[in-house]
Write a protein that binds this DNA or RNA. Structure first.
Lengths: 121, 121, 121, 121
DNA sequence: GTGGTCTAGACCACA
DNA sequence: GTGGTCTAGACCACA
């Protein structure tokens, strides 16, 4: 995994875990890699993993059992889709807010989206 | 003006200037407020204004004429719309990148946008 | 039994044993459940039960007879009440210390107690 | 300041700040000592202070202004008393919960409080 | 000067 | 083995 140097690594690790949940690679009840293992895998200091896991816990996405590890929270099947829904909606809202701030109206937003998607391909 | 504490103030000031251009309050050739005036108006450290103006200059949106002040660049009429176009597109691209990262496909993106706009109202 | 994740499980198990003594379910001379049985009953790692029993022994609440098991100490009748008295007083003292630390005087403490009891109902 | 080795230092630092607010030594709007200054004063690693300040911010007791420092939040006069009220009530509730868990009834609680206060003197 | 992040690594309680 | 806390110290963005 490569890190974007403009974003704190612990945030990028949180995102990575979320992506794994959305992709279905991690389900509710699953054990997340141990701090040391993930630190080695990502070539990152264990403290940074600890930080990421603590923030995930604060977001109630994971649960830590003392001496046993960190686990994905929530009900088995729903977790991935619910998370995708939540993230998608909150990212979309922040985006719309930014566009409004720039003086761009709702119908123009859709045009920008289409153009941006076009240019990606 | 209130600042979002999660975003550097100098960025928010740059945005403020851009908004004024898009809104037509500042046009190409206009003189931007002096560092001292704007600092007082926004109740902000003058260094922060200096930083914002330097970044605007780096983006080639303004130009500084020695001893005369800082001015909006470009041709009179087009500046506002061109800026809106540029900002809209770059914000939209960043948004789409984030959605893809979260495992959301292009057609789902449109749905999220609609839902987000709905919930705003 | 559900565990509060902010308190070590072995402490919560010690408390559970104490509660059983206070409630009269365990009396002086009674044999405490075997490590294996209690581990199964509470769905907990047997090591954790061992730890809890060791601490209870250190507090001189239980005693282990080689090859026979672990037993509640003391004279038959008094044990429950004495324990309740001890726990009540030590918990109360710790509480008062905390309140003093927060700058709350003795007469205010009583008011807080009354309010807290009221709000519980 | 001496630290109780059973409680994380960052928690004890948070408590210290709260005490200063309750005592009126820190009021809303006041600047809290800088990370480095307090680290030196308390002979503690700066990271530990950072941690304490971040948690205080999460509790919405303080507010951080980038590059300027950390400040006590809230309205000027009320802060100290409100905080005292909040802490007092939450500590009292936790205490009553613990007493109930130990099989001690409300009217007995008051007796324990009195006895504990007596023995303190 | 101010707080934020990160590394390297120690020591600890807990299960 | 597992996560939690802490030190010592570097480097950074921001005001």
């Amino acid at each position: 995994m490569e890190f974007d140097k403009n974003v704190p690594i612990y945030i990028q690790i949180m995102d990575e875990i979320k992506h794994r949940i959305i992709a279905g690679a991690l389900k509710a009840g699953d054990k997340v890699p141990s701090v040391r293992d993930l630190a080695e895998e990502l070539k990152v200091n264990p403290n940074t993993i600890v930080r990421a896991y603590q923030e995930l816990e604060r977001e109630r996405l994971t649960e830590t059992k003392r001496g046993m590890g960190t686990f994905i929270r929530g009900e088995k099947e729903l977790q991935g889709d619910k998370l995708k829904e939540e993230i998608g909606l909150s990212v979309a809202k922040a985006f719309i807010q930014k566009m409004h701030d720039a003086g761009i109206k709702d119908d123009e937003i859709v045009l920008f989206i289409k153009k941006a998607i076009d240019e990606e391909n």
